Amino acid sequence: MTATHRQQIRRGARSGARRGASDRTSRGAALVVALVTIAVLASVTAIASSRARQAAAVVDNRRSQVTARAMAESGVLAARSRIEVELRDAGADSARVDRVFDALTSGSGALVQDTLIDGVFATAVVDVSARLDVNAAGAEGWQQLLATVAPPADARRVAAAIESRVHGAALGSSLAYDAGQRQRWQRDSVAATMLGREPTSRALRPFTSLDELLTVPGMKAEWLDAIATDLTVDGDGRVNRRTASRRVLASATGTLVDRPSRLLLISRGWRLGHVLTREIQAVFDVNGTELRLVRWREQDR
């Protein structure tokens, strides 16, 4: 082999080595690009999948809310219908009417309970007239009731404070507040309106929940807990002597009756397999064989 041939072979080998290195570099770069592309696609897919799951969860939760609300309302309607039917069937038979009310209010379970597709409701009945109405008890009634759980002097002071609150609410804000207070409330209302907020009324109002009693000066939580089962904010001042406790009867200052004048229907609805529960509390006046709606409250449980 001549020197020329050997040089050509060496040049060819070097050229081949350079081409091989270039090819390996190109393949490495392509692999890196492919791996980055795969990583980006995987990230995009994960994000899209996460958002899809979140959207599905939102839709499912909304469906549960709607189902729970519909079931709770159905429970109120079903219980009301059942009570009115039973009262109409009893007719003028006084003893039978008494048995209807006794059966309604003496049971510890649900009056009506049913399942519709994937929704469930359960409704219980409370004899509001068996309790002392917070806003109608009067200072004397409050003092008598509080004296069963608190020292007499404290019971007298708290009873006077509660009656003052209720009496002030009955008089209205124009009499319960002086001119300076009314001017400050009007100023605050104008400021709230300018800021696009809802003006907050400073007027006194009757108690709408038992928890509000804790805002009364001198009232203690342990006293309220001890008498809570004897109290209501949904009464009309009348007390059912057949179902009220001795403590309520001893504190009653209103009219005593022999049947419920008001009933509270507590209905809870939910969707099978979901924890979200909707509760509706509907207060009805008992007018003969009819129940007439007085108050309606809703909350999630």
Rank of each mutant, 00 (worst) to 15 (best):
F284D: 05
I83N: 04
W142V: 02
V112L: 13
G168P: 00
D236A: 01
G269D: 00
R238F: 03
D300I: 11
L265M: 12
V294Q: 01
G273I: 04
A90P: 04
I117G: 03
V166R: 00
S64Y: 08
Q144G: 05
V128C: 04
A139S: 15
A228W: 11
A228Y: 12
M194H: 15
W142Y: 09
I38S: 13
R131E: 04
R238A: 01
E279T: 15
A150N: 08
L77R: 15
R165D: 07
D127S: 08
V166P: 00
T45L: 09
G273H: 05
D127F: 07
T37Y: 14
G237T: 10
V294G: 01
F121W: 04
G218Q: 06
A68V: 05
L293H: 05
S267C: 03
A150Q: 09
P260W: 13
R99P: 06
A250W: 04
T232S: 04
A169M: 05
L116C: 06
D234A: 15
A155H: 06
L146A: 04
E86N: 13
E84S: 04
T37A: 06
R205D: 06
V40L: 15
A203G: 10
R262A: 01
R10A: 14
S164R: 05
T208E: 13
R271I: 07
V36Q: 06
R96K: 13
A70V: 07
S201N: 11
R182T: 07
G288H: 14
L276F: 09
A57V: 00
V36G: 09
V112M: 13
R292D: 10
S74E: 00
T289A: 02
A34T: 14
F207V: 10
V100S: 02
G107M: 15
D60N: 13
L224E: 11
S15L: 14
E198L: 14
R295G: 10
A39N: 07
A72W: 14
V286Y: 00
A161R: 02
F121N: 04
T67K: 03
A103D: 06
R259L: 14
W296D: 13
L145N: 02
R187K: 06
G107Q: 15
D225N: 03
E84A: 03
Q281M: 03
R156Q: 15
Q113S: 13
S164M: 09
L132F: 14
R63A: 15
R19P: 01
G119A: 03
L116M: 12
V126H: 12
R295H: 11
L204T: 12
V66F: 03
A147P: 05
P152C: 09
R63W: 11
L132Q: 02
V85N: 07
P199N: 06
L213K: 01
D300R: 12
L276A: 15
R51H: 08
W223V: 03
V40W: 03
L111G: 05
S106C: 06
R247F: 05
T277A: 12
R247Y: 07
S94F: 00
V216K: 02
Q183G: 05
D89K: 07
A226Y: 11
V40G: 10
F121Y: 11
G119L: 05
H274E: 13
E290D: 06
G180I: 07
A90Y: 04
R182M: 13
R24L: 11
E163I: 06
D118C: 12
S43E: 11
G75M: 08
V112I: 14
R27A: 02
G109T: 10
E140C: 06
S129F: 08
L41D: 03
D236H: 02
V85P: 00
R205F: 05
R238H: 07
V216I: 15
L116S: 03
